[in-house]
Structures are given as C-alpha cells and as structure tokens.
Design a protein around this nucleic acid. Structure first.
Lengths: 210, 210
DNA sequence: CGAGCGACTATACATGGGTATAGTTTGCTT
DNA sequence: AAGCAAACTATACCCATGTATAGTCGCTCG
C-alpha cells in the first residue's frame, strides 16, 4: 500500500527503520552507516529494510523526504515567533546531524532552497516601502543569509569548541543566539568601508581572488 | 602564477600521492575515495601509498597537515589585503573541496581555530579604544563570524544554486563578495530589535529553542 | 476454509577495498 | 665492487557490507 499515512503509522516498523536510518546517517555519515546497523537499531531484520525501501540510496531519499515534512511542520509552528528566522534549525534533535551531513554532501537542496525563498519573502516584506530597492538582489542576500544560518548546523562541533559550550543545551543555544543578535545588529563594515571595497571590486580585478 | 609551489620536493612521488589524495578526498569524500584510485591518479602502485603513509587514515592526516601549511602561506600572502578577512578561503582551487569536507566531517579543527584566533585579534585591534568593550566576548563573535565565512566553502553547491553563478569563476566570486559587502554593512536587526529580543532571551525561557 | 498478499526472517552471494607480505629496482656510501 | 636501505611493484588475503533469494507467519477477503 505505502500510501504512507503520516500520523497514525508512526510506530510502524517502517517508521522505526526510517528513524534509525536518520540517526545512523547523522551519526556516522552515509557511507559508514550500515544497513545492518540500522536494522539492529530498529529491532528488525536486515531483509526488512530492503523490503520496505529498495536500497540504501532509496532509504536515504526516504529520510530526506521525511526530513522535509518535519521541517515544514516545525517551520509552521515557529512562524509566529520573531527570532525563528535567525537560527531556524536550532536544537532539532536527532535531525540536526542528519541535516548537517545532507547539506554538506550537497543533498537537501530543496531544504536550502526553501530557506532562501523564506528569506526572499522576508526581505521583500521588510523593504516594500523603501524609496529605492537595495542594489543587491534579495535572492542573493537571502542565499548568503541562509548559508550563514546553516553554518552553525553544519559546523556545530567547531562552533561548540569556539564558544566553549555544547549546542545541545539551551544554555549553549542562548549563548549562540546572544552572539548572533550582537553580530546581526552591529555591522562589521561601515558603509564607507563597504563602498570603497566595492568600488575597488567593481573597478578592476582586485587580484582575481579576494 | 600557475600555482604549484616550486618546492623542490613537490615533484616527488610522495607529493604526487598526497596531491592526488587531496583531490580524491575532496571530490568523493573520505570513504568513497579509494587508495587504488589515488594511486592511479598519482601514477603509482597501490603498495607505494602504503609505503609512504601507513594507512588511509594516516594519509588523510598528512593531507590535513599539508593543507595547514598551504593555508598559512596563503594567509600570509593575503595578510596585507583588506578584504581577505571576509572570505578568506575563496577560490583556493583543489583544496577548497577538501577543506569543505574536512570541516563538515569535524576534522580540520586547527584550521577553524586559527581563523577564530585571527578574528579575535582583529576585533581586539578594532575595538581597542572603545569606551567600553562590547558585552559579547570577542571570541564568541569571532567563532560565529568564522563559521559564517566558512559556510560558503562548505555549502558551495547550494550557494551557487542560490546565486545562479559558479563560484569557480571570478565573476561568481565577485557576485558573492558584493553580496557579502552589502550584508556585512547593513545590519539585519536594528539595535532596538536586538535589544528587545535579547531582553526576552535573558529574562525567561523563550520556549527553550528559538 | 483456503488462497493470496504483505510483513518479516534467515541465509547465501559477490565484490570492493583496506591491509599485509614478498620480491625487484635504484642509488648512495664505504 | 659490495652491500644496504629506501623507493617501488605485484600479488594475495579477507572481511565488511550491499544485494539477492527463498521461505515462514499472519492477516483479510471471498
């Protein structure tokens, strides 16, 4: 059947396998994770994994798909809260590692693109009655912001080391958020600095690479 | 100009193997890259790889080490240029993919930490005659900035998709840099927004996750 | 009842790929 | 010239792991 009725079936073996896969892929990465290990975690035989999902790759795709669903739900839940745009992926438990790996590996494109779209809408809303639009397109800015926001998910370990706290804890999350609030409200460059830098950039080849 | 540092030893078989490994690890990831493939690319037998580096893991570590050296050199070369702090890893050729994978996998910690240290020094220099220091420690801010800066390296594919240009080209680099200049000079939050958000954060538990 | 179908298990197969060993060439020192 | 170490090759080992097959159980439907 596999109509995958979303809610009621979530105790099913199929769902258990999927969840176990999410965890294993997240913890060990796609290659190092083994179907046998996943099966064991799910309390299920090796063959059943193959029965439900055809192959390891297909299992991964099922994980991606499920992740997107969860993300959408989380996003809608958090849509009202004001800070959610800054660090939208904070503390999403077992999914965080998976998402990080998927993003870094180049997968999870729909998720990233969705974040960009959200950002674009946000900018358009915020700038709708500006005298003239910024000279950098909203899409480019949204892309950059999306990448920046996700960096804390992908580079969690390094950020934790730098901050000296675990991002699993709400304390760590607060520390990060406090820093983000500061950084996002204190520009690194003055408009003049940016202008001169940009002029140099536009004018010639600032050595090609910057 | 044509790169390939003229170190006398850089034509050695050992160096060829290391370079091939850098490329293979970068292109396919650590697990999917095979010693055999690396050996072939280096024009060398399988056993020689093992002879010079003891194991696949050790080979990786040699790559990390070499990467750090190259990074230091590049960094010193670019130390004078003003924009280098923003996007320091731009267009570093074959090393970019490797660095991205290493960072995402949790390796390359010394590299990340070095970037944090550089950022801290930068902040301290820039803020040395401020009436009172910012209430967010420089180290935390430097960590966040480092992660943000590296996000474009780690999430290259997604950023390229969002920007609609290849980051291999100088045109793409310019596009990114232009956007960065804008974002870094236009705060996303007004001081008031940040203050209220922060107050909310400090006061209670804004639901634990933000 | 029985037949068919999906959930599930047990076991086998095949191979990629890291590791290990033995042998060959090259070049340098005494 | 001898000899020795290092650079290098060829080949074998072996097991982890993805894939495939065959079979059992238990349900529902006619």
């Amino acid at each position: 059947m596999t109509t995958t009725a979303p809610d009621p079936e979530d105790l099913t073996a199929r769902a258990r396998i999927r969840d176990a896969a999410l965890r294993h892929f997240g913890e060990h990465g796609f290659e190092r994770a083994t179907i046998r290990g996943i099966a064991e975690t799910a309390g299920v035989s090796l063959g059943l994994v193959r029965h439900h999902f055809g192959s390891k790759q297909a299992l991964r795709e099922a994980c991606d798909e499920h992740l997107m669903k969860v993300m959408h739900r989380l996003h809608e839940e958090a849509a009202s809260r004001p800070l959610s745009g800054l660090n939208p992926v904070a503390a999403m438990g077992p999914y965080r590692d998976y998402l990080a790996r998927a993003l870094a590996e180049g997968w999870a494109a729909p998720f990233f693109d969705e974040m960009v779209r959200i950002g674009v809408r946000w900018f358009e809303e915020a700038e709708k009655d500006l005298p003239e639009p910024p000279d950098v397109p909203a899409r480019a800015r949204a892309t950059v912001i999306a990448a920046m926001s996700l960096s804390f998910t992908v580079l969690t370990r390094h950020v934790e080391r730098g901050l000296g706290v675990s991002l699993e804890t709400t304390e760590g999350q607060h520390e990060l958020l406090r820093t983000l609030l500061y950084v996002y409200s204190h520009p690194l460059l003055t408009p003049e600095e940016a202008a001169t830098a940009r002029a140099a950039l536009e004018k010639g080849t600032t050595t090609g690479r910057a």
